[in-house]
Design a protein around this nucleic acid. Structure first.
Lengths: 218, 218, 218, 218
DNA sequence: TATGAATGAGAGTTCATTCAT
DNA sequence: GATGAATGAACTCTCATTCAT
């Protein structure tokens, strides 16, 4: 991957601040995904990017700050990829399809580098008690719902979707369905498979927005 | 029921095991709700029920075991209260209404003694990495979806609801909406209020099940 | 000495709280004397009394609290020994002599178990910036000056000393001389020896109080 | 004097070694005064003189070396100012008065740029265990006592002071009184005010040297 | 000269767990 | 059953020191 791998026995030398920060944030997000937020140690992050623990705290004022930034960073990355994908599709229905597809946990591992939903759950837990995280969550959350609402608005402007409920309201409704289903898939009991999520999300979205889906398999 | 009855007004001496366990579980659930799972110390739980830390570990083999049991215990309590409430209503529509009502975070504090949804989120996080919790979650989760599916089945048997999608499928769909909205309410940004959740859950459920809601205010 | 020595390989077993606290305070005072306040580690104290570092912080809320208490404790011990000694002498001049004698650094090692003056200097440094220590210092300091003033008052009541300056004022003056000389002796450059301090303190005290010393060697 | 003169108003480039060293020493003395020796970090010193920590250690082989030098440096500065002041007064009694005046903590802030006595206490603590500091202290200490003894000798040569005790002995005695009182004033409990120190130091000095003070207010 | 990124050795503190009583 | 003293293994964070640039 994009990691600079230090040859053993050779000091990699200093990097400019911004690169290092991003490297650390990426490492942190990775570790949080792997071990969970509460089991993430600074040491783990340091090892993941091959530096000392001292350096981590040289770039971030505290572990807590770093973790919040890492969660935000990972979500930002996801959002950027998502936006890029959506822009490729002119049709609102294709966009909606793509958004759903990209949101199914584990469906497109080449797209979801990290387990984005696992990070969302960590964000929720933390936001419940950490005002700083709560603030960040508010931003991330609105951005997510707006992505959906924007698709609805776009679909109406092109005539693909009928007029109806307020688009923001639909953002909330469809967002809730996708969130709720993603949790089920994430928990991985087999009751709700990725394919189930895909199908159900589409069905329910269609019903809520008010357009007809092609018959399955079409 | 085999309980030793502590004489009222007398300092309770040693208690029989089952009582103590429940007391500790209740205290643990309370502390987890207050401080979050990862910030819960055995000492906190001990203080909450006025015993020593030693005693906590005398009854539970380890902190981890205790926490998992406490989360399960709290959810059981919620489920028992929910079932009791549902049984009071003969009509499926009233049952569905009641289920939704009881699920809105913070709407009925006299019913939700603890912040049940905050505990759900903790369960999700933990289930992601702890197989024991994952196992428990599977049970709790199915029970929750079945509560919904059973209402659907009941409504169809009484003719209140039309035939349509598989009831279990609807359990998943409506469950997802409720879960997703509950998170939004829980996060408490004001974008989705308890009343919003109430209204939207009812609307979407009606649309998905296929019955007509009375006009608002009726 | 009074230390319970744990047989190797055998756990010494728990002690009652108050004993342990005193043991730790004594150990802390010892370590501070040996290595200096700023070089005193909790680990050092723990080793000195043969317990774990965890136990130290089980008895004292923080290292800082412990250090302040230890300095106070050591001074208390010194003061108690001093008072006991003074009470043995009915004559004010003998009391003054004894007080001076007991105050000379290193003169009576069987009396000054610790290097009390080294601890005083640490108290001064700390009191300059730590309000808690400043508060304690105020008490210890006044007690010290009052010991001197009380001797003066006693001497006047017996007719040994002439009337003159306010006794508290003399407490300040003689206290200052003793403090100042003690520092010189403590620094141990040989310019002011313990015997010098003894002699000078007596001379200056006599002059300040206003009585005649017997010719040297009498 | 071999100084590179930095053009005024122009960002100073690299400086010649001696200037830099002095700048750093002054900054170090300032920081030690402000925060105390044991709380002084290289970083603090670096910030105070606006350079990097690297540079500090480029000029001083280690933190410990720097601190000792800084304490010496500050005392040197005080001594130079003191000597200059004394030379202004031909009369020994005026010199003694001035010396005492200049020694009272906080009395003449325009003269005592730093809290010289706070630094003395730090010197004492450090000298107790650091042989290097002990060595320096010996020098500084003797210089201090000699300043007093020299005034006594001067006063005798002019006939202001009577013959009597050895002048060095008086240096020790008066020095001790001043040291002891300075500590009391420094501790700032209000029991010994700067004015008290002034008055008492003069009284006791007069008594010890053997001359008569003018009546107060004269 | 001067910088500041990087290290690494501790330091204090927390806390689950044990165990003698 | 119940206590709480005691342990010891982590963990976060600090800071003097080094070194490539």
């Amino acid at each position: 991957m994009g990691r600079t791998k230090a040859k053993p026995g050779v000091k990699p030398g200093p990097k400019v601040g911004k690169d290092r920060r991003q490297e650390i944030l990426a490492a942190a997000a990775q570790v949080i995904t792997d071990r969970g937020l509460s089991e993430t140690r600074i040491q783990d992050i340091a090892e993941t990017c091959g530096v000392s623990t001292g350096l981590i705290l040289y770039y971030f004022e505290s572990k807590d700050r770093l973790l919040v930034e890492a969660l935000t960073y990972a979500n930002d990355q996801f959002y950027l990829r998502l936006s890029r994908e959506l822009r490729k599709n002119p049709s609102a229905r294709a966009q909606l399809d793509r958004l759903i597809e990209l949101s199914v946990p584990g469906l497109l591992p080449e797209f979801q580098f990290l387990d984005e939903w696992a990070l969302w759950v960590e964000i929720w837990v933390r936001a419940l008690r950490d005002p700083e995280m709560a603030k960040e969550h508010e931003v991330l959350n609105r951005r997510w719902r707006r992505s959906i609402a924007d698709i609805v608005r776009h679909g109406r402007s092109t005539g693909e979707f009928p007029e109806g409920l307020d688009a923001d309201e639909l953002g909330i409704q469809i967002g809730a369905v996708v969130d709720g289903l993603a949790i089920q898939v994430l928990m991985d009991h087999g009751d709700v498979t990725p394919d189930d999520m895909l199908r159900v999300s589409r069905d329910v979205s269609a019903k809520l927005i008010g357009f007809a889906l092609e018959p399955a398999g079409a």
